[in-house]
């Protein structure tokens, strides 16, 4: 099973919920907007973090595609 993180462009409000949840997957750029550090979360822990980030992102910017 492979998973991929996609970001809906132009929606992020810089709340950094993603960074607090999964600093190994997400960071903020100079302007405070989301940057994906690792597009392909692997292993249970990273997948779990990515799912949580998708669920709690207030602007629904994060989409985890699992196929």
């Amino acid at each position: 099973m492979a998973a991929r993180i996609e970001i809906e462009p132009g929606q992020c409000v810089g709340a950094a919920q993603c960074v607090l949840t999964a600093s190994e997957l997400f960071d903020q750029d100079e302007d405070g907007y989301v940057v994906v550090l690792n597009k392909e979360p692997a292993g249970d822990e990273q997948l779990d973090h990515a799912r949580t980030a998708e669920m709690i992102c207030p602007s629904q910017s994060i989409v985890l595609v699992e196929d």
């Binding site: 409000v13 709340a15 919920q17 607090l20 949840t21 207030p58 602007s59």
Partner: peptide
């Protein structure tokens, strides 16, 4: 428990700027 999905800071575009 994992409380992170709480809405104590709101949700959506106005979610608290000062939360961190």
């Amino acid at each position: 428990r994992s409380a992170r999905a709480h809405v104590a800071f709101g949700y959506g575009i106005h979610q608290c700027l000062g939360q961190n």
